[in-house]
Write a protein that binds this DNA or RNA. Sequence first.
DNA 1: GCATTCCTTAATGAATTCATTATTGTACTT
DNA 2: AAGTACAATAATGAATTCATTAAGGAATGC
Lengths: 247, 247
Amino acid sequence: MTIKPRRNSPERKAVKPKIPTSGRSAAAPARGVRPNQADVAYSRLRELILAGSIAPGSFVLELEAAAKLGMSRTPVREAMVRLRAEGIVEIRARHGMRVLPVSADDMREIYEVITSLESTAAGLVAKRGIDTNALSSLNEAVKAMDSALERDDLERWAQADEDFHRTLINSCGNGRLIQTVDQFWSQAHRARLLTLRLRPKPTQSNREHAALVKAIAKGDAEAAVRIHQEHRERAGRLLTDLLRKIG
Amino acid sequence: MTIKPRRNSPERKAVKPKIPTSGRSAAAPARGVRPNQADVAYSRLRELILAGSIAPGSFVLELEAAAKLGMSRTPVREAMVRLRAEGIVEIRARHGMRVLPVSADDMREIYEVITSLESTAAGLVAKRGIDTNALSSLNEAVKAMDSALERDDLERWAQADEDFHRTLINSCGNGRLIQTVDQFWSQAHRARLLTLRLRPKPTQSNREHAALVKAIAKGDAEAAVRIHQEHRERAGRLLTDLLRKIG
DNA sequence: GCATTCCTTAATGAATTCATTATTGTACTT
DNA sequence: AAGTACAATAATGAATTCATTAAGGAATGC
């Protein structure tokens, strides 16, 4: 018997069934199932957007994206629908998918949501207790931030900061909250990178992180909420003010 | 010249370009644009699910839904992707879309998110002020709740309660927060209906609503946050406990 | 030169076709 | 009778086809 040739014309590059390494996606591809073309399109496009490789404000046609990704329009279309649901692109008929620029006002909105949910998460973690693993991760992150700050390594600091917050949120015991924060966090990511070197040294941040860990370890939910809220509000103000300045 | 006949086989019932009246959808169909088949499929399916017409836990195949809605699988598929992104269904290969049942634990998660965001919204409204229109809407809703309660008209009370909260949230000046609350609110809706007659008379609720309006009118953000938080936490506990009891 | 109308073209929305594959049922073996 | 192998089937994932329609440009009139 002969092998039937596939009739696919978009040249079939052996698709790596690699699981995307980036943080959990909002529209979760069912667990453990190997990703299909639509999943590939979704995560590839998402990465491109979040890394800034597709400029905010620019349009991407279905056909363009399909060609670039080596697949047909169908899965690309599905991916775009998911990205729109996440709020990081809009779809304009006959212009394709437009990567939404994040204005200062958008950033205010995003930070208000993040502040609200993360503070709640901090409170929940303090109230419900945190497992030893996570607690030591938090402490490590704090240490990493301190040493990065001493060496003026801002990239390192930002990474540790992100680790800290991700660990914190992931310990809150509320999957929906985690996913929602994740979604908004990714939208703020670009702006954070953009303004990293324009911000004052985040020494205050480090103090707040340490205080938060202490409150959580003590199980003081009230304090945890308050500290985290102030922390985020300050960060949000800083970021939105900066965005307003640099346009 | 003759009119070219369309070759569509699924009988073309004159598609009403009606804008769905229900609350704003999470994956916003672009403003002002007439809805396409995918939008129709999305809102029809969503209505069916939220009204309980598609039983939680049950599976719906793409082809079934397509036949029922009089369109092909393509737009149905797109709609299902959107519903999955919203977290109200899951998609299992070869079994179709499964309406996710909302367990007591799910409801806890949902209420934790709602509580967090709505309290923040209440605070924002108090801080930023509220326009006269919205304020009188709130007062009307409070009045409606009171009179409905006197007449033991629970449906009416639930409607007024929903109006109150929707008005409040819509006044917060944060579109992303509004949309996110809306999304979770719709997930809680079924359970609320289910347990409406099992709950004690919501006299306490009415008092809290009145107090909240007063705090907002005074511009007392702290109080607004606190009152609303307690209000929602109590409601959440009540609902999840009930769900736990009745399974 | 500028506005208006018509025509062409390209992008989309949606149906359809096709290949793959999980699932279900059946036959067969032990 | 129980379990396994195999075959038929049905559902999906994805490509492709087709009709529609907005966008852009050319031609026309002022």
